[in-house]
Write a protein that binds this DNA or RNA. Sequence first.
DNA 1: TTGAAAGCGCTAACAT
DNA 2: ATGTTAGCGCTTTCAA
Lengths: 329, 329
Amino acid sequence: MTTTMRDVAKAAGVSVATVSHVVNDKPGARIGDDARRRVQEAIVALGYRPNALAKTLSEGSSRFIGLVADAIATTPFAGQIIHGAQDEAWRHGFVLLVANTEGNAAAENDAIAMMLEHQVRGILYSTWYHREIEVPPPLQHTETVLVNCFAGDDSFAAVVPDEEQGGRTATEQLLAAGHRRIAFVNTTSPSPARSGRLAGYRSALEAAGIAGDDALVFEAAPQQEGGYDAAAAVIASGATAVFCHNDRVAMGLYDGLRERGLRIPDDVAVIGFDNQDVIAAHLRPPLSTVALPHYELGAAGVRTLLGLESPATGARQLIACPSVPRESV
Amino acid sequence: MTTTMRDVAKAAGVSVATVSHVVNDKPGARIGDDARRRVQEAIVALGYRPNALAKTLSEGSSRFIGLVADAIATTPFAGQIIHGAQDEAWRHGFVLLVANTEGNAAAENDAIAMMLEHQVRGILYSTWYHREIEVPPPLQHTETVLVNCFAGDDSFAAVVPDEEQGGRTATEQLLAAGHRRIAFVNTTSPSPARSGRLAGYRSALEAAGIAGDDALVFEAAPQQEGGYDAAAAVIASGATAVFCHNDRVAMGLYDGLRERGLRIPDDVAVIGFDNQDVIAAHLRPPLSTVALPHYELGAAGVRTLLGLESPATGARQLIACPSVPRESV
DNA sequence: TTGAAAGCGCTAACAT
DNA sequence: ATGTTAGCGCTTTCAA
């Protein structure tokens, strides 16, 4: 049924070795023009397709890269991690094996086992939000790169977003627009995002010669509801601009501000974080924000897995969070 | 380096055939308790892992299923298609090969070629929104199932959402809440969603003995902006409830309604479509909507590809869009 | 310039 | 009950 190399060889009147050589365009292989042509013709005539599996078996090394995700296909924007990883893998002739585990340890082990059985070159282990993780035991003895997460002792190569730079960038946008009294509505849940963005906020203020004022730092649940509820306090603080921990908080804040008759950005400037498209691009006014570099995280993960990127040893590789200006600042 | 079956056989003092039998728990294979035990011990002692690729090669049939998506990893909720497909594939011992093509024909052909070279059992071809497509030529001679899309002549097995039932369901929610004058803000872009939901809306009204009134059917760009802009006309129509083509339109409508001092659902009830979580669950009030069954589309696609589901021949398989009641009705 | 043949790790008759 | 062996489709020395 499927036509193999042997079929091509027979049709072209040559040996399989010759076919193999022309198919792979082997450098050190002298093939007569005539033979080469006959092989090529036979290939198209028979519709021959190399069997990648047999090739792998024979060569000993596969072209697979595994991506195990805790909920990446479930959550809105983090699917970009898959996308970035897949593009980059592709670019280097690799194929992505994807497994979604929903954070279920059993599923996770199964997924990893399955990938190992498929001889993956290595595994990308990724989470849908940036956090510290316990690396699953089966990964200990496998070429692994953590994406959007990291081991507590940094014993694994990891690629994560630069939260602090992101927080700084956000704050700088507000500063650049002339604001001096800038509030920060942070999340209540401890996380690299929470501390990193706060650090960035502070460092930007400091760099601008503005004394940090803890009365301007608020905490709220990281959804629309949190932002909405924070509105009153933010207004009371006298802030003229507010940096929200994420776009959803910003969206809630919009509601709260609007309800009190405040206009954005005229009365209060707002900047978000995450660049969650469905929201940010379509709020009124469109929300200025800072993007989480999901695509880049996936791509960089693949690169370091393939050894194309040499991260400072043992250190997390930080990926910049770019500013996405729209109309709320 | 990697330990093979032969290593295990040697360690256990048996032949590879025996090892193969115990590893695969072959039904018709009588293996002595003693030998079986020795093999199992050797397996853990050596940390043996079967090579799935060699197995495939030998068996002749692979356990791969390909999923080529036009933008599925890019777009928020449709990542659920991947998720559903992967879960279902997994459930049957299959592995998903994912490729995102961004609608680029060249990338698409490459992706398909690569999958074929990896001996996939078949290919799921999916789009991020429900529509008619031109099936890529290389798929013509391949076991293919279309997911969230369909061929113009229905010459391919396809699994799509039941837009009409969805539209009916949405309208019924409004009807059940006692509304009689129900507006429909449809999208301007021609699509199965546009015509299907409209048909569902009409059929629900008719079933309730309400005469359809074209003055109650509006058209708007399918984003927040469209909903916002439609608010005035909707209000002027005297409708007490409105079914929005999607959640984003509903979100915009919320703004428009609120700006005019109307309260939801007291003054006007609103229902959306898509169940786009970031939005629907967190609007104020939370938006009642109808869900697009992405996960199920992916899962059903895999099932029909594996021949576990027998679709009425040549027909599209319709997946129901369930109602997701929240507080806007 | 080309071919023969020995694997790659595993399965599946077929023997024993 | 267990072992032998011939492939699966391809790569790769090594000869010719």
